[in-house]
Computed example of a mutant assay.
Amino acid sequence: MGIREDAFDLLACDGDAVRTRFNEFVSRHGVTSDRGRAGTEVAADADRGDRDDLPALTERDRRLIDRVRLLDTAPIGVTLCGPAYRDTPILYANRTFRDRTGYSLAELRGRNPRLLQGPRTDPAAVAKLREAVSIWEAVTVDVWNHRRDGTPFLNRVSLRPLRGDDGTITHWAAVQAAVQAAVEGPTERIGDAER
């Protein structure tokens, strides 16, 4: 498995598997917490977590945010968004995403990820992301995003719905990696099929 799939597996696993999934993530990808610790200690911190800065969130929101926090120093951007019926607001973005885009967590929280769109953003790529959200399917798309200062960068965005205990989609997770425009061509996947 690649780092994207491992990140999504960590976000989507049931509560009892979080510690195991995180330890697997650390061993495969060498990611440690910002405190220089890995594995069990970090997962334990996420269980108790400093969550007072997250008002008006459900307990599921808080659990998922704690999981994304485990990935704060991963070499990929990770965002957790709320339900589509509320315009899919960002609930949390890991440190890598914030460093890459130049936005603080306070500036991101509650905003739709479309804030990264700008003059270079291709409407066709945005349409593919919207289609995936509307049909509740996973998608991977290369899209030109813009940092807070307006600088464009090519971003490979993998978007995946997260299901609650009853099987309904409660959140959307996205994994982003900046890519070199000249090195790789655009990728689009909806569901399991490549288009």
Rank of each mutant, 00 (worst) to 15 (best):
L105P: 01
T140Q: 12
F8I: 04
E59I: 09
D53N: 07
D166P: 00
T32D: 06
S134R: 14
S104Y: 08
Y103K: 05
R67Y: 00
L64F: 00
V31S: 05
R35E: 12
L10A: 03
R109L: 07
A138C: 09
Q117Y: 10
G164T: 11
L116Q: 07
Q180Y: 00
A182Y: 03
H29F: 06
D16C: 08
A12S: 13
D52F: 04
V175T: 02
A181V: 14
A132S: 12
A182K: 09
A125K: 01
A173C: 15
R189V: 03
Q176D: 08
F97A: 08
P152N: 06
W136V: 04
L154E: 04
D142V: 15
L116N: 02
F22P: 12
K128E: 10
I135C: 05
R62P: 01
S104H: 01
G167P: 15
R95I: 02
V133N: 04
T151K: 04
R98G: 01
E184A: 12
S104Q: 03
G82D: 12
A7F: 11
V179T: 08
T58M: 03
I90W: 11
E5C: 06
R48E: 06
W172K: 04
A74N: 11
I3V: 13
D34Y: 13
V18G: 00
V141S: 11
D45F: 03
G39E: 10
V179C: 11
G191F: 05
G2L: 02
R163T: 08
L54V: 02
R86E: 12
L115P: 00
R63P: 04
R195K: 06
L115G: 01
L159S: 08
